[in-house]
Design a protein around this nucleic acid. Structure first.
Lengths: 205, 205
DNA sequence: CAAACATACTGAACACTGTTTAGTAAGAGC
DNA sequence: GCTCTTACTAAACAGTGTTCAGTATGTTTG
C-alpha cells in the first residue's frame, strides 16, 4: 500500500509549498499585509484550501518562524568551530544583530510578533526553537566559565543577561526606537554600546 | 469673539475624548482588536467622525503612546529625588520592567508596536518622548560618572547599553519569548539576570 | 465493471476591518 | 431672513480571517 505514503508525501509537499509561498510574501510585505488569499493566489489554490493544511494564520506564522530559526542556526554554524569561547560569545552577539538587520521580518516572527507563540500556547507545547537557541548560548557561557574567563556561576542567568542586552538594542533598532538619533549617531551608539558591553563582560563576569 | 476659542476648546475636547476611549479599549484588548468603529461607538459618534480629528489609526495610536509616556514619567517622578545616583539607576531599571508588567499594552505602544512611529516618520518629526526619556537615563549615568561610581566616558553610550539590557528582557518577557521556562524559573532568571547586570555595572563601568 | 465511499478542493457567505465620499443638518455672520 | 461654514453621518469600497455546503476526483469494495 504505497498510496497512503504517497498521500502523506503529497500532504507534506503541499504544506511546504504553502509555507514557502507565505514566507516569500511575508518577507516582502510583513505580517499585516500577509493575507491568506494572497498565499492561496501565489500557489494557485483557493483560500479555503490553506485551512485544510493549517489551523489558522497563526499556525502558518509558526511554520515560517520554524524555517527562520533553521536559517539562523545555519548562519550560526561557523561560530561553533571557533576556539576562543569569549570570541565565540562576541561573534554570536554580532551575528544576532546582523541577522536581524538583514532579515528584519524573519527576526520579527522569531522574537517579536506574538502570533507564532499563540499557536504554541494553545497546543500547550514548549517553545523548542527558543530553548535550543538559548541552550547554544548557555553552552558558550559555560565554556567561558570552564576557561576561567568568567567566574563560576549559573550559566543560564549569565546567558539570559547577555541575550537581553543584544536582543534589547536589536529590537529597539528594528522597531524604530532609536529614531531620535541621526542614522550616523545611531550606528555609532549601537557599535560603541556593544563594545562597552563586551568590555564589561570581560571585566566583571 | 469667544466663539473661535470655544470651538477650539471643543475640538481639543473631542480629540481627548477619542483618545481616552481608544486607550480604554486598547488597554483592554490590544492593537489588533482595537477598531475605529469600536472607538466611535464608545463615544457615540460615527466612525467617519474619528477621521475629522485624526489622520488615521496610527495617529490615534501615537496619541495613546504620548499619554502612556506621560503616565510612565509620572511613575518615575519619585526616583528623581533619590540621592544615590547608582540606586537611582537600579530603581529606574526596576520601574521600567514593573511598568511593562502592569501595563503591557501601554509598554507595547511605547516601545514595540511600529504604528505610532509610522505617523512620526511621515510627519518627519523626531521622537521627542523617547528622546526625553532617554535623556533622563543619560542624566543619571552622568551623575554616576560625577560621583566616581562610573569612570569618565560617553554617558549616551553607557545609557544605551543599560537601556538595551533592561528593555531586552522586558520585551522578551512581554512577547512570550521566555515561555521555554516555567513561570517560577522565568521569574528567577529575570530577577537574577537583573541583579547580575547591576553587579556587573558597578564593577566595570 | 459499477456502485459506494473517502478525499481534495472551491465558491460563496459571514462578520469584520480601515478609509473615503457625497450629502445633510445645524449654527454663525451679515 | 439668507447665505455660508462647520460638524457630522450613511453608505460604499476594497479588503481581512474563517467557515461551510457542495462538487468533483480518486480509491476501495461487492
Amino acid at each position: 500500500m504505497g498510496i497512503v505514503e504517497r498521500k502523506e508525501r503529497e500532504k507534506e509537499d503541499m504544506r511546504r509549498r504553502i509555507v514557502d509561498a507565505a514566507r516569500h510574501l511575508y518577507v516582502l510585505n510583513g505580517f499585516e499585509k500577509l493575507s491568506i488569499r494572497a498565499i492561496a493566489e501565489e500557489i494557485e489554490y483557493s483560500a479555503a484550501t490553506i485551512y485544510l493544511y493549517f489551523k489558522d494564520k497563526n499556525e502558518v506564522m509558526y511554520a515560517i518562524h520554524q524555517q527562520a530559526f533553521s536559517k539562523m542556526m545555519q548562519e550560526f554554524q561557523p561560530i561553533v568551530s571557533m576556539t576562543d569561547p569569549f570570541e565565540k560569545l562576541v561573534m554570536m552577539g554580532r551575528k544576532y544583530t546582523q541577522f536581524a538587520m538583514e532579515n528584519p521580518e524573519l527576526f520579527d516572527v522569531m522574537f517579536i510578533i506574538t502570533a507564532p507563540m499563540d499557536t504554541l500556547e494553545c497546543r500547550e507545547e514548549i517553545w523548542s526553537e527558543g530553548r535550543i537557541a538559548f541552550n547554544m548560548l548557555v553552552q558558550v557561557v559555560q565554556e567561558c566559565i570552564n576557561a576561567g574567563i568568567f567566574q563560576p556561576q549559573d550559566p543560564e542567568v549569565a546567558a539570559m543577561m547577555i541575550w537581553s542586552t543584544i536582543h534589547g538594542y536589536t529590537a529597539l533598532f528594528i522597531r524604530k526606537r532609536m529614531n531620535m538619533f541621526s542614522d550616523q549617531r545611531r550606528a555609532e551608539l549601537m557599535e560603541q554600546a556593544f563594545a562597552l558591553f563586551c568590555d564589561s563582560l570581560r571585566k566583571s563576569l
